[in-house]
Design a protein around this nucleic acid. Structure first.
Lengths: 134, 134
DNA sequence: ATTACATATTGCATTTCGCAAGTTATTTTT
DNA sequence: AAAAATAACTTGCGAAATGCAATATGTAAT
């Protein structure tokens, strides 16, 4: 996990966030958990974007080391591990929501999925509560 | 600019946003413009994080091709170009704000800069207006 | 014409990524 | 108890992206 060693450490909050989860895959893993209820390594692998196994495990370890995810054995399936968001991880919900709003406004592809966007527009606060599992 | 060819195109708004500006440098360029009033190639190069020249020009072209930036000659210095945000680019303000809020909450380094965070907390809406140049 | 400045490009070593195959640990089936 | 199946990794290697230094191109001032 080399990516962890390279820290810009500029003190800027934007740079801090980018160092923590600002790569092409971390937010997709977080989306799988927060928006789609996925929890295990093999479920993340099935995501439509097709993440490679070594990249996935690298990101899971990184996010875990950053206190965004935590890993525990699945009590219902002893050979499986469950990744879940910490409160620090759930605090990413507003970023995810703003990302969805931005894309909803600017992605004009016909196949763009609009259901989540409409749900946000109806009631953003309760959508955020839902993401947080409250 | 190979990064442009690799598009996940999954239809998911999170993936769309990540494809558009979800690398380690794009948001830093946008920060330079939106939060620090920087406008030119050489100003971006001076950012504390130290972006390489080839990466910078790659990202500028990419963001321009995505309609987030536009490039014009500086009327006051005819040998310089000015990059500015389009309205699509300014719409990234809420994402930047949420990123700053998240980092402000979770970056416990002593040197983390808190002035911007406090300004957001006092009045988020007028901070966003300020970023948008309104 | 020369110099200086600003933007951009090129070459090359290093790092990361993506894909396929293999490994380890645990559980189920026979 | 042995074999098969499942889940979570790990490894190897070619391809792509990145970082750094040097060079090139275009514009303006002297």
């Amino acid at each position: 996990m080399k990516s962890e060693t390279k820290i810009r450490n500029s003190g800027c909050p934007v740079a801090f966030g980018l160092d923590t989860f600002g790569d092409r895959w971390s937010l997709l893993v977080i989306r799988e958990i927060m928006l789609r209820g996925k929890r295990t390594y093999s479920e993340f692998l099935q995501a439509e974007e097709g993440i490679a196994t070594n990249i996935l495990i690298d990101r899971l370890k990184h996010l875990e080391s950053q206190g965004i995810l935590e890993k525990n054995r699945d009590p219902e399936n002893r050979r499986s591990f469950v990744y879940s968001l910490t409160s620090k991880g759930y605090d990413l919900a507003p970023i995810l929501i703003e990302l969805i709003i931005w894309s909803g406004k600017h992605d004009d592809r016909a196949n763009a999925k609009r259901d989540v966007l409409e749900e946000i527009q109806r009631d953003r606060d309760s959508f955020e509560m839902k993401l947080r599992g409250v």
